[in-house]
Amino acid sequence: MKHTLRFTFFVLLLVLAGLLANPVSAQDGQPPTDDDVNQVAKELYCPVCENVPLDVCATQACAQWRDLIRLKLSQGETESQIKQYFVENYGARVLNEPPREGLNWLAYLVPPVIILIGAGFLVRALRMMKKPVVAAPVKGPSVEAPADDYVARLEEEVKKQK
């Protein structure tokens, strides 16, 4: 009991530390570093260079976006607020994934559904293929002598290859 209490306290402390540290170095008055800016930019995409993350895109437009991120960080905005601003101004395509809303749910739901259907087909196919074999296989494996069986199999396969 005591143990769990201490653990909870520890977790709370961690959470608190995380909360305090999170709004990227804005509270302590330090100007945001390049790393703080890249941290946010990494997950954004600028329409001017499509499919290249903002932190590595070299165009002038992207450099301006990074400056804007720096400005907003220095004003104390959080990462999610900044992202929200970019979505409002430039559309959902600045995000590295479709936002989870409306039709976009299709993006996340269709692949698992198709994969599950595929798995269903596979199981069915295996069941159908695996009919009971009437006669016991002639050169069946003797479980007692796996090594010899292995050699036989190997040799047989080598022969088949020829």
């Binding site: 995409y45 329409p47 499509e50 499919n51 993350p53 559309g91 959902a92 395509r93 600045v94 995000l95 590295n96 994934e97 479709p98 936002p99 409306g102 039709l103 976009n104 299709l106 993006a107 269709v110 692949p111 198709i114």
Partner: peptide
Amino acid sequence: FWGVIFPLISELFTGQKVTVGPPF
């Protein structure tokens, strides 16, 4: 395949351009 094709679907049906990036 779905990741590549989905932005086309989204643009076609909602007019919204989206990016499907590495996390997906």
